[in-house]
Simulated scan of single mutants.
Amino acid sequence: MEYFTKSVIPFIVLIILGYGMIKGRKVYEWFMEGAKEGLQTCLRIFPCLLAMLVAVQIFKGADLLDMINRILAPVSGFIGLPEEIVPLVLLKPISGSGAIGMFTEIINTYGADSFIGILASVIMGTTETIFYTITVYFGAVGIKKIRHTLWGAVMADVTAVLVAIFIVGLII
């Protein structure tokens, strides 16, 4: 089975290339055009990605996460969000890799079967890296005004966190 799964993608590529050649299409030229467009897209979104990465590093380096966690402690306590998960909720919309690191730390500290571990797992699965996603996808097509996308995405993440607290609270 492992051999089959490793050979599926090359097999699909060969089928596409073969089909294109049989139909008399310019497969190689189309591939080169697609590669050129992909490179141009990368160059277009690079400044946005660089700005996002710098902002994340500044956010982490200045210990702003701990300060914000202390400020939000009364609100998080009121809605039932454990203080240990607040940094994960704050970091996930900004940085997926930072959130994975924080999630791993939560699981290692509190365990996967604890309320905190299960809640962190549900939050990781139901929230999105909003700012990264908006930066990449909107930057790729040249959209400068994000209009209501940011607010809609933030509301979706807030809803996901609140529902996660409620559901995990019911289960545990």
Rank of each mutant, 00 (worst) to 15 (best):
I107N: 06
L91R: 01
R147C: 00
S121G: 15
S114P: 03
T133F: 12
K145T: 09
F131R: 02
S95G: 11
I118F: 05
K144E: 14
G117M: 04
G139M: 05
T104Q: 15
F103W: 12
H148C: 06
I94R: 03
T109N: 11
L91Q: 04
F131S: 04
I116V: 14
G117Y: 02
T159A: 15
L150I: 13
G139D: 10
S114Q: 07
T159R: 13
A140Y: 03
S121P: 06
Y132E: 14
I134M: 15
T135H: 08
G96R: 08
D113K: 11
G142E: 10
I143M: 15
M155R: 13
V154C: 13
I107F: 09
R147Y: 09
G142V: 03
S121R: 11
G111W: 07
Y110D: 03
I107H: 06
H148M: 11
G96L: 08
G139V: 03
F138N: 14
M102V: 00
P93E: 05
G139E: 07
Y132R: 07
F138D: 11
I116L: 09
I130N: 03
M155H: 10
N108C: 00
V122R: 10
D113W: 04
I106E: 00
K145D: 15
G152P: 06
I107R: 10
T104N: 15
A160I: 01
G101A: 13
G152A: 12
L90N: 04
K144I: 00
M124P: 02
N108P: 03
M102S: 09
I94N: 07
T133G: 14
P93S: 08
T127S: 13
L150P: 01
G98V: 02
T129P: 07
A160G: 12
Y110F: 14
T133Y: 13
A156R: 10
I143P: 13
I143R: 15
G117R: 01
F103C: 03
A99D: 10
I118W: 05
I118T: 09
V122W: 03
G111R: 09
F103G: 01
M155W: 12
S114M: 05
G117H: 01
G139Y: 05
I123A: 04
P93N: 09
L119M: 08
K144L: 09
V136G: 06
S95Q: 07
L88M: 07
V141N: 14
N108F: 00
I107A: 08
K145E: 14
V158A: 15
I94L: 15
V161Y: 00
E128P: 04
V136N: 08
S114L: 05
G117T: 02
G96Q: 10
A99Y: 04
G139S: 10
T126V: 08
G125P: 05
A160N: 08
V141K: 13
A99E: 09
L90G: 07
V154G: 03
D113E: 15
T104K: 14
A120Q: 02
I146Q: 14
H148V: 00
A160Q: 03
L90F: 07
I118L: 11
F138E: 11
I134S: 09
L119G: 02
F131E: 05
S114D: 10
E128H: 06
